[in-house]
């Protein structure tokens, strides 16, 4: 099947720092791909380049048939980026719920403001997705009154309500207390089972092993392995991958 996300020869510089070096990846529809690697390896930057939260320096990004060149300019380029953002949903490490809006308002904000969706229809859609993450009963609460895990589940519902083709997760459980990680991973698992295409930057090796179709390992701005999880975790080829996996096994991240 033709890939739904295709990143080709992507370079990214922060000032003089070369953080992504000709990275190319393909993600097939309904595939779940986990990106692992030490901090500073470039995995979050790669993810953030896909919806242009970071402007890549060179290369191309294609999402669901929309091809965007890195160094584009002008109105047409901006429109393309906007369209790519409509096809991708993003979940952040720090949740980034809007604190001045209730849970329901957070979730309908995108469809109503960006897509101009009818409010009643947006509410219906939002309630379905809040139900999916098990938080419909919190719809009138404000984010401040939710636990970290609940906030992240609302953030997932918010992204899903935009009905994206691809979901991008940027270390979704890294800011959570250990006992709250499970509930978020369970929701992600459910979203994956429902057939969503997912790209997940994570440190959760258990999740990668259990849910991912493919695991990409990044180091120094490059992808050093691209394997099925069983192969990767049982027979890592690169010594850096082996070191990474061993570190998580012994629990010293």
């Amino acid at each position: 099947m033709a890939p739904i996300v295709q990143v080709s020869k992507l370079d990214k510089y922060f000032g003089r720092l070369h953080v992504l070096k000709e990275v190319s990846i393909d993600v097939a529809p309904r595939e779940v791909v986990c990106l692992i690697g030490r901090s500073g390896s470039g995995k979050s930057t790669l993810l953030r380049c896909i919806n242009f939260l970071e402007e890549p320096s060179f290369g191309t990004i294609e999402v669901d048939g929309l091809k965007v060149e890195a160094h584009g300019k002008g109105k047409e380029h901006r429109q393309l980026i906007h369209d790519v953002r409509l096809k991708t949903g993003m979940v952040f490490q720090e949740f980034n719920l809007f604190p001045h809006m209730s849970v329901l308002e957070n979730v309908i904000e995108g469809p109503v403001t960006v897509k101009g969706m009818d409010r009643a229809k947006a509410i219906q859609l939002a309630e379905e997705n809040l139900d999916r993450v098990g938080l419909l009963f919190k719809k009138d609460e404000y984010p401040m009154r939710l636990s970290g895990g609940q906030k992240q589940r609302v953030a997932i519902a918010r992204a899903l309500t935009m009905e994206p083709k691809v979901m991008l997760f940027d270390e979704p459980t890294s800011a959570l207390d250990p006992e709250l990680i499970g509930e978020v991973l369970n929701v992600m698992k459910k979203v994956a089972t429902d057939g969503m295409t997912m790209l997940v930057v994570t440190h959760e090796m258990g999740f990668a092993r259990e849910v991912a179709d493919r695991v990409l390992v990044m180091a120094d701005g490059e992808i050093i392995e691209d394997e099925k999880p069983d192969n990767l975790f049982n027979q890592p080829k690169d010594p850096r991958t082996k070191a990474l996996i061993d570190r998580y096994r012994t629990g010293t991240t």
């Binding site: 993003m90 720090e94 980034n96 935009m162």
Partner: peptide
């Protein structure tokens, strides 16, 4: 208003003006 708030709005597809009006200014 933190950078994350703007990024969340942008990721939802908001224009700079919508981001300012709906997310940044109220806070």
């Amino acid at each position: 208003v933190g950078k994350g708030q703007r990024e969340a709005a942008i990721a939802l597809g908001m224009t700079p003006w919508q981001t300012m009006k709906r997310v940044v200014l109220p806070q």
